[in-house]
Amino acid sequence: MKETDSEVGILLENTPAISLRGLTKSFGSVHAVSNLDLDIASGEFFSMLGPSGSGKTTVLRMIAGFELPTAGTVVLDGTDVTKLAPFDRDVNTVFQDYALFGHMTVLENVAYGLRVRGIAKATRSKQAEEALEMVRLGGFGGRKPAELSGGQRQRVALARAIVVKPKVLLLDEPLGALDLKLREQMQIELKQLQRELAITFVFVTHDQEEALTLSDRIAVFNSGHIEQIGSPRELYEQPKTNFVAGFVGTTNIFDEDASALLFGKRIRSTMRPERIPVFEQPTQGARQGRVIEAIYLGSATRIHIKLDAGPTITALVRAGSDAEQQWHRDQVVQVDLDEKNLVKLETN
């Protein structure tokens, strides 16, 4: 925890857009979020990544004001908003299932935030139309949400949230309901939109690939606390815990016994599969094993190997590399477990 704090501190020399201190939320005896400290910088694309039930959505809802924390404070741009209602906070939310107002047209939906701020009809219609243009939905204003596709509804939800020009946009698994192709397209658009608007995005997702793709920084959530905060590269290359290593990408995790056996160190450690070269011919310093399963993935082949020394490992051989060939079951292979690719994990 101390380490995390100092790391956050380094990043944030100016007033953070969002600052959470000692944030705790209990539902009865269940601690959804416990004693969480977090700073998010202004203009950052920040992701909260974790499995369902890890507390990431609860944190988002406390920032938005839908849930009141059991303990701790929420500070937005230097102002303590812990006790304020959602309508008094300068943040807006894009909901997982969009939460569009079904009885209003698309334009009315987008203009809603302006309407309740007492902005004249002509002005708000114009601004709403601009927001729709921004999400490439110009001309759809007259339709009802029910007449739109999932992706279009998602864009309406986005337009509705950004039209009021919030300092922070909260996105709660906004792409969860879209199919893969559309999701990838929307990811790009989201990233562009964030750059154009230059506002803070706080993005909740359980999809590690999405988080890695989009984010400046990612907080990995587990059981109501943050396991690690860092850039996508840091999280991938230097996972601090067993959980982060396993959740962000696929990896080989070695417990103390395996590490001692393979590397002579009694530590917990991890090594990414793509960092393990596989050879057919016996090689200097390589270990011998037998292929249990070889899975062709197109861009790569994933090979599960039972080492003669005991442990089972996974290696990833990229297409186009020297090692590309037909791997098959029961084949005897050599793997190079280079200690420089080994990452030490914290023992909790």
Binding site: F66, P86, G113, V164
Partner: peptide, 13 residues
């Protein structure tokens, strides 16, 4: 839905 009410409140209503 609860989130419709939250959305409204979130948008400043």
């Amino acid at each position: 839905p609860q989130n419709i009410l939250e959305a409204s409140s979130d948008l400043g209503a």
